[in-house]
Write a protein that binds this DNA or RNA. Structure first.
Lengths: 202, 202
DNA sequence: ACTATTTCTTGATGCAGTTCATTGGAGAGA
DNA sequence: TCTCTCCAATGAACTGCATCAAGAAATAGT
């Protein structure tokens, strides 16, 4: 495969993703291919660092990213994991063009397709269909975020862990437990006790 | 004022809201006036009841709504309050056309402008500008939801209460404390203790 | 293959927040 | 005016989860 073919093969999953919402014509496909740039991040590399303005909207082709905040006591709180075919970006910082309080980094070597703020506006202007596509995309993100908030307000750590196993099962063996604990909002020690308790049961 | 004038005066805040995103032409204003219907809900009246499909997207003209879940133990957990110039609807149920797990009801007599699912699709088709307007609207909701999740993961009840006072100050005296406690994810008793502690300080 | 670093487990102790029960106050309705 | 119901306050006992500490197991770097 030459360089062009490699890029094309990476852009496929993105085009497929869009076409699940609305079919695209060739001009629109062309536009996507031009405006989204592939980029590789190495494990532990920052995609977005606190204080910077988030300037890229990221679609994950393969690998895994996390978005998190570090609080005053130095604890990290993970807001979101993103793996293949998911989107990740600090939407607030991206749209309001103001410094991010959140970090994004790679938990594995990760290939993304990213579009800059400027090019996304260009995309909206040249192909208004994408206004709708991104509306739907954000509606979906909103719904899962709302589910998660509900979980956090209304459930114990054990219930949250179990529903994480349900909803994120592929990640369970892919991530270190410290990361999962930080996503659930508990200490790694307590997660260890929960797991211990559950294995004893079965 | 005759009936038409009353409706017109109610539609103003909605048009203003839209025009903060993009200016509307007269056809578009006309469309909004036709497709959004005013409706009054009495205190304690349901706007959406668990098990029903959410069929209305609501803009609050005056009054106050809440959206909440009742868990297995019978506790209510408030996901969102909405007052003047805010939107409220169960977006998941609304778009996926499936039964709601959440309830929406009125904490005060509340006037809303509501658009049905069918008419919203009509609006998108006849005036694609609204694809963008609703994308922006949901982006904003997403950002505040994300802030709230972060708060919940990373702060103590006292910190959450204080930041509620900051962000929702107009509501503090407007709502009973049980409602605020249920929004913060704590018991009314514990909220009472927090308040007691804070008044002693000052 | 060896060390260094990170990750997981387990115990002891402490605290934030819950639960249950009781009391007092305030608004709504007859 | 007198209930009746709803809401706020407070005490005592309890529990879910954090913290600190220390050791074991796994991973990565050279």
């Amino acid at each position: 495969m030459n360089a062009d073919d490699i890029i094309k093969s990476q852009i496929e999953p993105l085009l497929n993703y869009f076409q699940k919402v609305i079919r695209l014509n060739n001009d629109e496909k062309q536009l996507v291919t031009e405006l989204f740039k592939p980029r590789l991040y190495r494990k532990r590399q920052y995609v977005l660092q606190e204080g910077d303005i988030c300037n890229q909207f990221n679609f994950i082709v393969r690998g895994c990213l996390r978005m998190y905040k570090i609080d005053d006591k130095g604890n990290t709180h993970i807001l979101q994991f993103a793996v293949e075919n998911w989107w990740l970006s600090n939407i607030g910082s991206f749209h309001e063009r103001k410094p991010s309080e959140l970090n994004i980094d790679a938990l594995e070597d990760t290939m993304v397709l990213q579009i800059s703020h400027e090019n996304l506006l260009l995309l909206y202007t040249n192909a208004p269909k994408f206004d709708r596509i991104f509306r739907v995309l954000i509606e979906n993100s909103f719904v899962s975020l709302q589910k998660r908030l509900l979980q956090n307000i209304s459930s114990t750590a054990e219930e949250r862990y179990n529903s994480f196993l349900d909803s994120h099962s592929p990640l369970t063996n892919r991530l270190p437990q410290t990361q999962i604990a930080s996503f659930l909002g508990i200490t790694p020690e307590f997660l260890s006790r929960l797991r211990n308790k559950q294995t004893k049961k079965s």
